[in-house]
Nucleic acid binder design. Sequence first.
DNA 1: TTAATCATGTAACACGTTACATGATTGC
DNA 2: GCAATCATGTAACGTGTTACATGATTAA
Lengths: 170, 170
Amino acid sequence: MTGYELAKAFDASLSFVWQAQTSQIYRELNALEKNGCLTSERVIQDEKPNKRVYSITDAGREQLRQWLMEPEAGADGAASVKSAFLMRLFFAGEVGDEQALNMLCAYREACLASSVALDEVAGSIAQYGEYVRSEERTKYWGIVAQFGESFCRAGIEWAEKAIALLEGDE
Amino acid sequence: MTGYELAKAFDASLSFVWQAQTSQIYRELNALEKNGCLTSERVIQDEKPNKRVYSITDAGREQLRQWLMEPEAGADGAASVKSAFLMRLFFAGEVGDEQALNMLCAYREACLASSVALDEVAGSIAQYGEYVRSEERTKYWGIVAQFGESFCRAGIEWAEKAIALLEGDE
DNA sequence: TTAATCATGTAACACGTTACATGATTGC
DNA sequence: GCAATCATGTAACGTGTTACATGATTAA
């Protein structure tokens, strides 16, 4: 793929789990090429800008495998969330219930929006799935998408309870 | 508080939501002092190492308030998770079901462990709550802790479903 | 006697974000 | 005529992590 295509693929499938700007993608592609994990080839196009197509090398795939096999996977900090939103909420005593309620409502809406986006991801999975044509790969994509759905559902329920609690206080 | 105490307070209450190394804490304390958000005072102790106690200034509290009042709070990227674990799982097709099952089991265990840690946080909240003596503040701490609990519960259920699905495949 | 707790930090690196720059083509 | 899409990137900055350094006191 090209850097540009990678950026889009990220967006269409992994965006819930990982976001990456093109600036970062190109930087990392350079680094990966330097250490032999991938190769690139310039493709001249007319009608469209030229592009650079990257391909993984055997060494690269081997490193990927090794990363995937690391034993701490799942056990490390996976069961925590780094969230500026929750930080803010934690300190909401400083500004009062009104802003806390705003935040919680906005969060609830954001969860609903993410749910919708995840439905679209399901579509993308089907599409890329045809391209890859391998149950072996796509089934994990679905599992990750399901995580997103559970997360959103839990988030909505939690926000609603918290809203009820704060409104009961007033 | 001192940098050291802040590190412990983070750990005892916010660790699910934000983690910070002392190296980062001291760096940020310096920066915040330079721009007038806080002041510090050196306290000489015998029997124990000397320490530096930081206090927020009015300007600092004002900036905190402003940050807390920002309108995007909750709406931004709050309804997504940046997770290396989920990234790995996404690509698990590269290494097969066995490793995927390992990851999911480890994740389930990690969620259970986080649940336990969150129970302890509840204790810390009660303790710090006495110190602060203000319902206004502690109620938000509880709400954040409840988020953690929902997150863990959802994570466990999701992992179990995914494990069942993969085992059914074999 | 070994590890933990108290208490400070620096240096280097890795990773992520923002802003900026370029320029052709296609659809509204 | 304007915005979006295709396609590349650089520079600077901000944030988070790892490894290292020091040294006293106290509990197992």
